[in-house]
Every structure is written in structure tokens, then in C-alpha cells.
Design a protein around this nucleic acid. Structure first.
Length: 349
DNA sequence: TAGGCCATCTGGTCCT
DNA sequence: AGGACCAGATGGCCTA
């Protein structure tokens, strides 16, 4: 399921609520603003605690010293007030660490969201969907590297959407300006009658994908074969749209070299404009300009000459751009700049 | 209202 | 001993 920004506020509310219910723990939550204050406070508590502890220990010894024979082995310490206090402090610290750890994890996940296709600030992918999409993306890209040739769009999208929920599939399809219906399995009842099932074998360019996740019990989303004429009919006057160059070969660019992004080594991004519209995705979400780029992280001459067919003629064949592919609103300024430059080159050539 | 997703707390385990 | 990591529990928010 995709999630909205509102949930961020929800989590803030949640934290505030926790703060009310557990006042000591709540103070630890203000790491950004009052981390030092919080540390001081913890120190003070610890010092007080130590003083208390000494008193309590003395009391305990006095109790043990009377009549009863001394027990061997580790003393089972009773939960005195001081110990309880110390236990609480330890828990508070552990909780704070755990929160930080989870925040770090979430930050990493957010970074991941930004580098997988279909990033949107307003329509965030869930954690699990982000991981699945990333896994598929990595698989698809490595398949490109392995086979040495670019897949067709349908196969690429199909691979990306394996294991994803229907809403996420829709979202990804939206990013790729595809009709999500074309992902439905052949036997899906609500498949439009005008959409005949098409065997994957009919598209020799497809690469097959055996998702380990699918065999590991992950829920299978509706996916299947795709019919190109329906997939691309949105693109006016171009049966395969401006994507064709991407899948048939490479575009030669004599433009300036670009610094590839640090991560991922190979990224695909771009923007759309179209009348395409479906749940959660409106035309307004797309950029007005059609652009699409694939830049190979090897940078400069690092690209594989054979990888995209005709690309071998280009000394900088690692850079490749075609019109029209995914992208929401969230790509970095750096990548936007690159897109702009790539588009300029493409349209000049 | 049920289900999905999330943040947080908590106790256990392992490692340094 | 203390920190990192993990998984279960809990409760809140949102959406279908």
C-alpha cells in the first residue's frame, strides 16, 4: 500500500502521545532539540541513583547479617527503589538507542526509496514494498548487465513489479506510464475483453524472472503478460513511443560528459507528461517534459560498448537517453540537472 | 470495522 | 557491563 505524507504527522502525534503517557521516555524523544539537556538529566538521575544505591546496599547487608546463614552464589538482589530507578534509566537509554537505530534504518530506507524507480515524496512506498521494488530493480539491472542488452519496457516493468502489491504495481505502472491492467494475469476475470492474453513467449526480448521472494511465500501480485499495443497506445503517434530507442539500441550522444550519480551505479529516471491518469496518479504528477535517461555508473568510458546495441559507436556509450519514462516528483536536483542536460543533448542531436 | 502500516517499548541474545 | 540487534507486543492512524 502506498502511504501519504500525513502519516509523518501521525507518527509525530504518536510520539507526542507516548510522551504524555510516559513522561520520562518522552523527554528522550526530543533528540533533535534537547539532546544535551536530556543527557544532563540522565547524568543527574544516575548520580542520584548511585547515592541511593549505596544506602540501599548498606541496608541490605544489615538485613543479611542477622541470624540467617550467608547464601552462596550470586545474590539475588531485590528490586529496591534505587535499583528500580536504575533499571528505568537503563530502559530509557535502551529505548532512545533503539529509536535512533530505527530512525537510522528508516533514513536508509528513505535513501533507498529515492534510488528505486518511482519515487514520490507525497506517495511514499511502504517499507516492504520499497524493499521488494529495490530487489526487483537490482535484479532487472543485473539482468541487463548479464545479458548485455536492454530489455523491452514491458519486461522491465514486469520484473520491477514482481511481488509488489496491486497499488504499488499501479504506482510503478503510473510512473512508467503504463496501463496497470496490462499487468493483470491472463486469467484475471476483470481483464478487459479487448485485451487478449499474450504469451510471454511472443516477446522474445523478454527476460524471465524467477523471483526468490515468490517462492518464499511472498504474496503474488497480479502480473503477467503485456500487450505492447495497449501499453504504448498512450504515446501519440509512436507505437512504441519514444521508448523505442532504449530497447532497440542506444542513442549516440556527443554532449558533455556527466558525473554519474554515486548510487546506484545504474539509474533510470525521467519524467512524463500525458493524459494518463489512474488511482493515485494524475497527469499533474508528471513533469511536462518528456525525458528519460539511463546513465551508466561506470562513468565516462566506463560503459559497456556492447550493452545497448548501437551504442558501441559512442565513446561515452555509458550514457544513454531516450524520451519518456518513469519518475515522479522526487528526484534530486542533481538528477534533474542531468536530465535537463541529457534532454538538451538529445534534442540537439 | 478490519486490515495494513507504522513507531515505540520491551526483553532476550550475542558480541566487544 | 553496555551496546547492537532482533522479534513480539501494543496502540495509533488511515483507508477500503
Amino acid at each position: 500500500m502506498t502511504r501519504s505524507v500525513r502519516e509523518d504527522q501521525a507518527s509525530v502525534d504518536s510520539e507526542e502521545q507516548q510522551e504524555l503517557s510516559s513522561p520520562t521516555g518522552g523527554e528522550l524523544e526530543r533528540e533533535a532539540g534537547g539532546a544535551e539537556e536530556e543527557e544532563d538529566r540522565l547524568h543527574r538521575l544516575e548520580e542520584e541513583d548511585d547515592e541511593d544505591e549505596e544506602d540501599e546496599d548498606e541496608e541490605e547487608e544489615e538485613e543479611d547479617g542477622e541470624n540467617k546463614p550467608k547464601r552462596r552464589g550470586p545474590k539475588k538482589k531485590k528490586m529496591t527503589k534505587a535499583r528500580m530507578q536504575r533499571f528505568k534509566i537503563r530502559r530509557m537509554k535502551a529505548n532512545a538507542r533503539e529509536r535512533n537505530r530505527m530512525h537510522g534504518l528508516n533514513d536508509a530506507l528513505e535513501s533507498l526509496r529515492k534510488v528505486v524507480p518511482c519515487y514520490s515524496k507525497t506517495q511514499k512506498l511502504s517499507k516492504i514494498e520499497t524493499l521488494r521494488l529495490a530487489k526487483n530493480y537490482i535484479w532487472a539491472l543485473s539482468e541487463i548487465l548479464r545479458s548485455g542488452k536492454a530489455p523491452d519496457l514491458m519486461s522491465f516493468v514486469q520484473a520491477l513489479c514482481k511481488g509488489l502489491s496491486q497499488p504499488t504495481t499501479n504506482l510503478v505502472a503510473g510512473c512508467l506510464q503504463l496501463n496497470p491492467r496490462t499487468f493483470l494475469p491472463e486469467q484475471t476475470p476483470d481483464l478487459p475483453a479487448h485485451l487478449p492474453p499474450v504469451s510471454a513467449a511472443a516477446y522474445p526480448g523478454h527476460f524471465s524472472y524467477q523471483s526468490p521472494g515468490l517462492t518464499a511465500g511472498l504474496p503474488s501480485p497480479p502480473y503477467g503478460t503485456m500487450e505492447p499495443s495497449h501499453i504504448f497506445h498512450q504515446v501519440k503517434g509512436q507505437p512504441y513511443g519514444p521508448l523505442e530507442p532504449f530497447f532497440d539500441g542506444v542513442l549516440v550522444s556527443d554532449g558533455p560528459a556527466f558525473d554519474p550519480p554515486l548510487s546506484p551505479p545504474l539509474s533510470i529516471n525521467g519524467n512524463f507528461s500525458s493524459s494518463f491518469k489512474h488511482e493515485g496518479v494524475t497527469a499533474a504528477d508528471y513533469d511536462k517534459s518528456f525525458s528519460f535517461s539511463v546513465h551508466y555508473g561506470g562513468g565516462g568510458a566506463g560503459g559497456h560498448p556492447a550493452m545497448y546495441g548501437g551504442g558501441g559507436s559512442n565513446p561515452r556509450c555509458g550514457e544513454l537517453q531516450v524520451d519518456g519514462m518513469m519518475g515522479f516528483d522526487g528526484h534530486s536536483h542533481h538528477e534533474r540537472l542531468m536530465n535537463a542536460q541529457l534532454n538538451a543533448i538529445f534534442h540537439d542531436s
